[in-house]
């Protein structure tokens, strides 16, 4: 009688189809707003989650939303992005905030912040509160 070969089931599920990419701010520091946003969206189009050192300016963040909306329907399977920014100055005292502002002004960017941008097809939701950020991925 032939012995049945029972394969052991792999308990950890493999998640296919996404990468995490880290980008230092120096990568976009000398670019104009249009080029910065194009670089960010190009990464989102490749199903990668981008962790960017620093943050965009407020008008660049809205421009990112505008350009994202313009690309939905034009790039195959692109349904938008999930976006979150963690900035250390949220819970600082007025004095600390002032110091942070000066440092930001001198370095030309809010380098203490981290921006997370993920394609909506990969990141279902980013749960954000002042202390933590949780990325919920699609199955």
């Amino acid at each position: 009688m032939a012995k049945k070969v029972v394969k052991k089931k792999n308990r950890t599920k493999k998640i296919n189809g996404f990468r995490i990419q880290f980008m230092p701010y120096s990568e976009i520091k000398n670019e104009g707003s249009t080029e910065r946003i194009r670089k960010i969206l190009d990464i989102a189009f490749t199903n990668s989650i981008l962790i960017l050192q620093g943050r965009l300016k407020p008008d660049e963040e809205t421009r990112l939303i505008e350009d994202t909306m313009a690309m939905i329907g034009h790039v195959k399977n692109f349904k938008g992005i999930e976006l979150a920014v963690i900035s250390p100055h949220e819970n600082q005292s007025p004095m600390e905030k002032l110091k942070y502002k000066i440092a930001t002004r001198l370095s030309g960017a809010d380098l203490g912040a981290i921006t997370i941008i993920g394609p909506a097809t990969v990141v279902r939701e980013i749960k954000q509160d002042p202390k933590k950020i949780e990325l919920l991925l699609t199955k």
Partner: peptide, 8 residues
Amino acid sequence: PGITTRVD
């Protein structure tokens, strides 16, 4: 209109 970063 409501602003969001994703529309599916």
